[in-house]
Design a protein around this nucleic acid. Sequence first.
DNA 1: TTGGCGCCCGACCGATCGGTCGGGTAGATT
DNA 2: AATCTACCCGACCGATCGGTCGGGCGCCAA
Lengths: 215, 215
Amino acid sequence: MANDSLHSREKILDAAEALFARRGYTGVGLREVAEASGLVKSSLFHHFRSKAQLYCEVIARVLDRIQLQLAPVFASRVGVAERLDRIIEALIDALAEHPPTARLLLRSLVEEGDFDSAEEAQRVDETLAEILDGIGGLLREGVKAGVFRRVSVPHMVQTLIGATVYHFASGDLGEGLLGRPILCAEEVRRRKREIQNLLHNGLALNSSPQVLSEA
Amino acid sequence: MANDSLHSREKILDAAEALFARRGYTGVGLREVAEASGLVKSSLFHHFRSKAQLYCEVIARVLDRIQLQLAPVFASRVGVAERLDRIIEALIDALAEHPPTARLLLRSLVEEGDFDSAEEAQRVDETLAEILDGIGGLLREGVKAGVFRRVSVPHMVQTLIGATVYHFASGDLGEGLLGRPILCAEEVRRRKREIQNLLHNGLALNSSPQVLSEA
DNA sequence: TTGGCGCCCGACCGATCGGTCGGGTAGATT
DNA sequence: AATCTACCCGACCGATCGGTCGGGCGCCAA
């Protein structure tokens, strides 16, 4: 039954996503993925050509989910400042409502792209580029319109990734700093507020001198 | 000769640092570390008890290096705002002047702490805690003194880690965004400026309303 | 000269890795 | 009833994993 097949496929993807997020690509064995999916290792190869392809599909699924949540915000026709606010909110929602996402993403960003030139890897790169272009374009628009300070757009994009993806991937360390689970509703709300406030102030046109100290 | 031994030890640590940074703990084999050190696998065990201990020592060395560069800034008696500026500068210097540092650090933060309760792992945790306490204390001091906005200190610490460590660990992705090597002198200088400016504005006491939009 | 010691090596260990293969079973098609 | 197809399994493959062991080589003290 095709339904069962899809069911198995998704179970594999779910299990692999959780495992890859926790211990990384090389840290997870296919036997483990299979067991967590209620299957046997050799059965995985009926759904995926190789471990690398499975990994790519996991990443692609995660990126697609995120892009799906960001797309309507990008398309909305409100002011740039509010659009940026909503992007932050949507991005954090996407990262928070599905725990493995942030870790998986951060890992895939840091991991060396040693995955053989597959079409899946290319789709991953494209989706990622779309998301980043969206954020970068938003910032550029704000700067050009004089709503934001004259910041370096690529650097600000990097900062935003770090402020969101890293935070929700920081696991025990972040939990130790916060004193409570990173994903609890209140801390998620606070994270949104903190980042948004930081941007409201940090991107605002400043009347004060840029450089305070020059040792 | 003890000199040769120390020499071998450091060569192993150097090789392991570069390799772990690039492909992670589970992604690197001891044979590879040995070969890069000009030795043979079994020789590694004369200097380190296990792979896990080697990894811990690598991380510890990196953290010690960073703490060594931050310590004088923490001890300096200038104003909080300028001290924060210099912390950012020193931290970015530490991350930039030794390429594997950021990746290694980011990986160790995300990696599960599955390293058996060794003394080395404990020392790593202590050093890390000292650094984070230093930054957190600095922020707290600034907020209490009324120099900084009333931000959540733990969240701001997280943001700073993301803005610094993540950026210099982002590899190809960051390089693609910037359009040139992350570690080239000009981009390193720009990174410092961007983060410092973001903080100058973002931490400043604001007269404007905190929340711009509430959809 | 002779031990002892620090350092290093090659050979070897059991376990696990990603991946293949052939066969078995259930449901749909003809 | 026969066939086909999708799905899954157990057995097996060569390679590599982290780690152990015994011995060899060179230096230093006695």
